[in-house]
């Protein structure tokens, strides 16, 4: 068996040392530190990215809250404005209606007053005409002069009885 030939031991050991030791030094000093640094850089990068993401998320959440608050405020304000406008309109309408009603009432009162005035005047003039008529009719029918006062008293009593029956 070639493995048990002691004559090849020195060369094997010599070349094992000559390859293994440099390989160890290369791995130790060059190759492995590179892998370590890359893995650390990667972990740092991932951590930083995650942190950034969580910061951005918090920021987004606070902006959303702000936005919602602003929206709620604006809605409340709009509601208030609408209510106020409605109130103002309603007030104005009420005032206008009241004014109109008052005006109409005044006009009605005025009209009624005038009507009663006219009525009074008409009644008064009716009295005058009746006097004359009574005087004339009396003179013609009775053939004598009837004084103005007599006629007037007759008319008034007639009017009074007529007014009483009315």
């Amino acid at each position: 068996m070639p493995q048990l030939d002691p004559s090849v031991f020195p060369t094997q050991l010599f070349w094992l040392a000559l390859t293994f030791i440099p390989l160890y030094l290369i791995m130790w000093k060059s190759a492995l530190p590179r892998v370590t640094s890359v893995r650390e850089a990667r972990r740092a990068r991932i951590d930083a990215d995650l942190e950034k993401a969580s910061t951005l998320r918090a920021e987004a959440e606070s902006s959303l809250a702000d936005y919602e608050k602003t929206m709620a405020n604006a809605a409340a304000k709009a509601q208030a404005t609408i209510r106020e406008a409605a109130q103002k309109t309603a007030d104005a309408a009420t005032a206008q209606r009241e004014e109109l009603a008052e005006k109409l009432e005044n006009q009605t009162a005025e009209a009624e007053r005038r009507i009663s005035e006219e009525k009074d005047r008409a009644l008064a003039s009716i009295g005058g005409i009746s006097n004359d008529l009574t005087q004339a009719a009396g003179a013609r029918l009775l053939g004598g002069d009837i004084s103005v006062d007599e006629a007037k008293a007759a008319v008034d009593s007639a009017l009074a009885s007529a007014g009483g029956t009315q």
Binding site: W15, L18, P22, I26, M27, A31
Partner: peptide, 27 residues
Amino acid sequence: VDVSFTNSALFMVLAMVLISGFMVLGM
């Protein structure tokens, strides 16, 4: 002392070169 460069030594050197290349060039 016989420390000839043998077929065994050749493959040790080859292993060393391949491992170093694999790790160093890979990174």
